[in-house]
Design a protein around this nucleic acid. Structure first.
Length: 412
DNA sequence: AAAAAAC
């Protein structure tokens, strides 16, 4: 089925093909007609399934009409939760839009870089603004743009933008948007409580939920390795050496900025081309690391959840959870950095005595049960499993309710 | 002992 049969112009269909979208993915096939007819949408589809194209293509087509109007007004606002994602989404929209006979102006704004060029780029208006919330509010306070003519709002990684950390900023932006706008919410994950909140913002929404099937599911092989927490860096080094030829690029997730620095430094000291990536780096350094990782100048990037969502790195065969993510939702986004656009992927999670219960919860949320693998030379010590006093660290033993109560009492 | 997002 071609893109044109969904109602897209031949120009856009060609632009999509040039970006590697030859035929619509399931989420694109379902979302594009809905967006073109002007309905609100809540779309939940797996990582790497082409969500940017799913909103970008119809958005560009709709904006093409009336693009010649002067003065230009911001007609579409795309909000994203990280600066890197803003840059990436802006790039995709620009590539897709370059094929249109009527050129659209796309402004990309985010923090950490000087504001003046962004103010200049908004002078005379823009058709689409792609933004992180903080910098957008800053620009609004300085009257660098108006949102009164926005007729389409896109929330990319919508569940993230709707959660507590962003709610104040998001509400301030929403208050400035016209009431009659079209709202498009996209994410790979929509926890029920976030769906309820989204429901209060959407007007009679169409829900598109692309069920994972054998045909469209990202082919991510998930593995869990049991290891003593203290031996994780050593194990990581071992695995990297062992897979020197087949792991061309590796993204390692850790829990804190400090750990990202520390682990990357340890690897680097051992002759591995590894570098940290997190929010305490300057924006210049962040942009550089990501570009160099994509170029192949770094073999390993050790990152916080800064890189967990949305970031598209082609040919990333492996993601490693050195520390487990805080939630099952974060796990889905993290491992979704690999196995994108039909490529195979491998996600390896390190589990130690203290994180075993948490890993079980993550598996349960996904309806999975993964075997615990042990790597020779890195067998966890039996004594290091205090949570299961009866079994003494027997593989696969589920902690009893009593154990959990005991653990909860200990931690409070 | 969380990360991210504006200055």
């Amino acid at each position: 089925m071609p893109f044109t049969s969904l109602g897209l112009s031949p120009d856009l269909a060609r632009a999509a093909a040039e970006l590697g979208f030859s035929t619509p993915t399931p989420v694109q096939a379902q979302a594009i007609p809905v967006i073109l007819r002007g309905a609100d949408l809540l779309a939940c589809a797996q990582t790497g399934s082409g969500k940017t194209g799913a909103f970008g293509l119809p958005l560009l087509q709709k904006l093409q009409q009336g693009a010649q109007h002067t003065p230009r007004r911001v007609r579409a606002l795309v909000l994203v939760p990280t600066r890197e994602l803003a840059a990436q989404v802006g790039e995709v929209l620009r590539s897709l839009g370059s094929a249109l006979p009527q050129r659209l102006k796309i402004a990309v704004v985010f923090g950490g870089v000087s504001i003046n060029p962004q103010m200049m780029s908004l002078r005379g208006g823009a058709d689409i603004v792609v933004a992180t919330p903080g910098r957008l509010l800053d620009l609004l306070e300085q009257n660098a743009l108006k949102l009164s003519a926005v007729d389409t709002l896109v929330l990319d990684e919508a569940d993230r933008l709707l959660d507590l950390g962003f709610s104040e900023e998001l509400n301030r932006v929403l208050a400035l948007l016209p009431a009659g706008r079209q709202n498009l919410f996209f994410s790979a994950t929509f926890p029920p409580e976030v769906q309820a909140l989204a429901g209060t913002l959407l007007r009679d929404p169409v829900r598109v939920e692309v069920e994972a099937t054998a045909a469209n599911e990202p082919a991510i092989v998930q593995r869990v390795i049991a290891v003593d927490a203290i031996k994780r860096t050593e194990l990581l080094r071992h695995l990297l050496k062992q897979h020197e030829s087949d792991w061309s690029r590796v993204l390692v997730f850790v829990a804190t900025k400090y750990a990202a620095e520390h682990v990357a430094w340890k690897l680097h000291k051992n002759g591995i081309f590894a570098t940290p990536f997190h929010g305490d780096l300057s924006q210049g350094a962040r942009t550089k690391v990501l570009a160099e990782f994509k170029n192949g100048q770094w073999d390993v990037v050790v990152t916080t959840d800064l890189a967990a969502r949305g970031i598209d790195i082609a040919q990333l065969p492996v993601v490693i959870n050195y520390d487990l993510p805080r939630s099952a939702v974060d796990y889905v986004h993290r491992i979704g950095r690999t196995g994108r656009a039909g490529e195979p992927g491998l996600a390896v999670s390190f589990v130690s005595a203290g994180s075993e219960a948490h890993m079980r919860l993550i598996e349960k949320r996904q309806g999975l049960s993964l075997p615990r693998e042990v790597i020779e030379g890195f067998e966890p010590a039996e004594a290091a499993v205090p949570e299961s006093p009866g079994g003494g660290g027997v593989k696969g033993k589920r902690p009893s309710k009593k154990d959990k109560l005991r653990a909860a009492a200990k931690s409070s």
